[in-house]
């Protein structure tokens, strides 16, 4: 059986090589009329042409546009190997999460990266999961967007909007949030990952880490609303090249970037993404 499988693979590899399957990149294009993948038409928008030409030049291959009706159809075609790259949302990504992955999102102008947020409670306390904190008090640490708006979004992504909790304490900084927790004024602290790291990793190794008695109930990045998705069977080198071409696009080719990121409001730059960026992971 193993020999049979190897032989089949060999045949398929030879066939694939003969067909030259790696000489094209097929990109989903949502529009009114679905159809087969084809080179970009002469009537394409200047920004679209700039994007396709940019990718073709940097990858050294043909780039085809694949008209699909909507994101769900794009996801289905991507999973089936009928195209190679698509912009998906959480709803279209979820059914194909086992065979695809996010590679890029867009950071809006003036916004943060999708930085992780940590929610922690006293290890000896009763809360063992997020649900146990319904009706409880959360302490936030700091006045920056990373300290307030971002943690709130991460919790909301997971169904824990502000109305789920009894109250939020806005401390001046992470240390203040921890003081509130230790004083029993709050049931949990919510910090962005860098604030947590600074708070919990004392510079002096002789000092006991102040977070040793805490239990992390959640560490997660905000869920992406949209992301560029590829199949998981794409090679790492190809994925890195796609990321490496997109990351500086806003600096190298403004027209291409404007078109390629037009699905994201106030786009500033492409940002790499973890495989499950479109999922509200716990």
């Amino acid at each position: 059986m193993r020999k049979l499988l190897l032989a089949a693979c060999a045949v398929l590899l030879v066939a694939a090589t003969a067909k030259g399957p790696s000489d094209t990149l097929r990109i989903a294009a949502i529009g009114p009329a679905a159809g087969p993948c084809a080179p970009l038409g002469a009537s394409a928008a200047p920004g679209e042409k700039a994007y396709y030409e940019h990718l073709a030049a940097r990858l050294g291959m043909k780039v085809l546009t694949c008209p699909v009706a909507d994101r769900a159809a794009a996801a289905k075609a991507l999973a089936a190997g009928e195209l190679d790259m698509a912009v998906l949302d959480p709803a279209s990504f979820t059914p194909i999460a086992s065979v695809t992955r996010s590679i890029l999102t867009v950071r809006p102008e003036g916004d943060l990266n999708r930085i992780p947020v940590i929610l922690a409670t006293p290890a000896a306390g009763p809360a063992k999961r997020l649900e146990d904190l319904r009706g409880k008090v959360l302490a936030f640490g700091g006045a920056t967007p990373a300290a307030r708006a971002l943690p709130q979004k991460v919790l909301s992504d997971r169904g824990f909007g502000a109305n789920v909790f009894a109250k939020r304490l806005d401390s001046a900084n992470a240390e203040g949030a921890l003081e509130a927790l230790n004083a029993g004024k709050a049931d949990a602290i919510v910090l962005h990952a860098a604030a947590w790291q600074r708070l919990c990793t004392p510079d002096d190794p002789k000092v006991k880490p102040p977070c040793d008695d805490l239990r992390i109930l959640l560490k997660a990045r905000p869920q992406a609303a949209l992301a560029i998705v590829v199949r998981k069977d794409i090679s790492d080198e190809t994925r890195y090249r796609l990321i490496g071409i997109h990351m500086p696009m806003h600096l190298e080719n403004r027209a291409a970037f404007a078109w390629a990121s037009s699905w994201a409001p106030k786009a500033a730059e492409f940002e790499p993404a973890e495989a499950l960026a479109l999922a509200a992971t716990r």
Binding site: L5, A8, C9, L12, L13, A15, A16, K19, P21, S22, D23, T24, L25, R26, L59, G60, M61, A80, G81, E82, D84, V99, R231, D233, I234, S235, D236, E237, T238, R241, L242
Partner: peptide, 20 residues
């Protein structure tokens, strides 16, 4: 890349690289 799904079962990941 049309044969990707099948080829992935053979343990070979697809590269989008032209020339070397």
């Amino acid at each position: 890349m049309g044969l990707l799904a099948v080829l992935s079962g053979c343990g070979e990941k697809q590269k989008l690289v032209s020339g070397d």
